[in-house]
Nucleic acid binder design. Structure first.
Lengths: 217, 217
DNA sequence: ATTTTTTTTTAGACAAGACTAAACTATATT
DNA sequence: AATATAGTTTAGTCTTGTCTAAAAAAAAAT
């Protein structure tokens, strides 16, 4: 059984490793968790001795099969709760992240099963991110960050990466909501800001923002 | 802001003090929390310095106004979540206590307000216990433990005290469910066991069990 | 009115999870 | 190849919440 802190570290490492596909460095984890590198080293040793990650000194960590499975369950819980908060309790999609961060730690497999049923087995959360099923399987969609695409491209916004409420509010204001059609009008070379068009309305957004918009290709 | 452990202690003290109306001894708290008296003394000092309880050495603790208000909010959250689990997720009333013990610690006043709305402002939880409103007000019902009543008494079961799942299952089996009419047939003097009748069916129950059945008078 | 027993508190220790400061590795630079 | 720098680990400390053992206070018994 993982402690609350261990669960949070594992989830962060899983995300930083892009689904367990690459090694993650101590300082990256420290930045993501808003702690110091020394604290990360301590936790790495714990998660490593419990076989959730593989640790090689000075090189970084890799998520094991067991670690991936555990992380996927946390992500499943987080996204199911977000879906519940929006669909049943009337929250807007930019208000639910913090609350779901707490709810994802509730320990009860039966609760999650019942919640999944109650929500009629949703495939994606309100941000458009896929919800892993009870075996950890994810229905993958073909998607790219907006900043990876070339001008002229038109697609559907499928997701917005989890981020702070300020960004989500901003995206809502400019109409960058999952399901909407988006066109990449032009791209500045020097700062990588891009001009986009949604429902005929043009807006210029910075690289940081465009990275957070995922488009179906 | 209270820590998880502090919240659990405060709730236990509030219950032992019968709604803040009497002083509670260190050993009572230790027994309820399944910890040692020394640990209780430490925690008492913390809760006392935060003004949730009044502490007098060797005498016991009393819950302050602030402490009562905080405890009532925890009870409100606990009972709202239990109601949600039974009414919306299809749990039975004897399965929900453990999960609600976790859910009651989620920090978000807005979440509780929305949950209350979603459940259409229930007045009582699935065990029949009243749910304090957002200001901590409780609609009091006139009720007594079954073991306080005299043979011949007939009333409606209004609540079953929170207890372990085993007891709740047993009560369900003998038909002792909130809303049912119950008659106290006879009472043994030597062990205070009582014979009851529910829907024509007679059962003999021990004192411990009869204490947990609350009847409207 | 002592003495014994029970209850409570204090003192000191430990594990988890955080920190700072110092030491160590690996990589880059000259 | 020697040195500077960036990143990582170790060592030692702090806080929270727990514990055991011993001391102190209150209550009960003689």
């Amino acid at each position: 059984m993982l402690s609350l802190a261990e669960e949070n570290y594992l989830k962060a490492i899983y995300h930083l490793s892009e689904g367990g596909s690459k090694a993650v460095l101590t300082n990256e984890i420290a930045e993501a968790m808003k702690t110091k590198a020394a604290s990360v080293t301590d936790m790495i040793k714990k998660l490593s001795s419990k076989r959730f990650i593989l640790y090689e000194k000075y090189y970084g960590v890799k998520v094991t099969k067991q670690g991936k499975s555990e992380a996927l369950m946390l992500i499943r819980k987080h996204r199911l709760w977000e879906t519940f908060l929006v669909q049943k309790l009337g929250f807007s999609w930019d208000e639910v992240h913090e609350i779901a961060e707490q709810l994802e730690h509730i320990q009860s497999p039966l609760l999650i099963q019942r919640l999944d049923e109650f929500l009629e087995f949703p495939l994606a959360d309100p941000h458009g991110e896929p919800i892993p099923d009870k075996d950890g399987k994810v229905i993958v969609r073909s998607q790219r960050s907006l900043n990876e695409l070339t001008p002229g491209f038109t697609g559907i916004i499928v997701a917005v990466k989890d981020a702070d409420s300020g960004l989500l509010k901003y995206l809502e204001k400019i109409g960058a909501i999952p399901g909407k059609k988006i066109r990449l009008v032009s791209k500045e070379t020097y700062d990588e800001s891009v001009e986009i068009e949604i429902e005929g309305k043009r807006t210029s957004i910075s690289r940081v923002v465009s990275e957070n918009i995922l488009v179906g290709v």
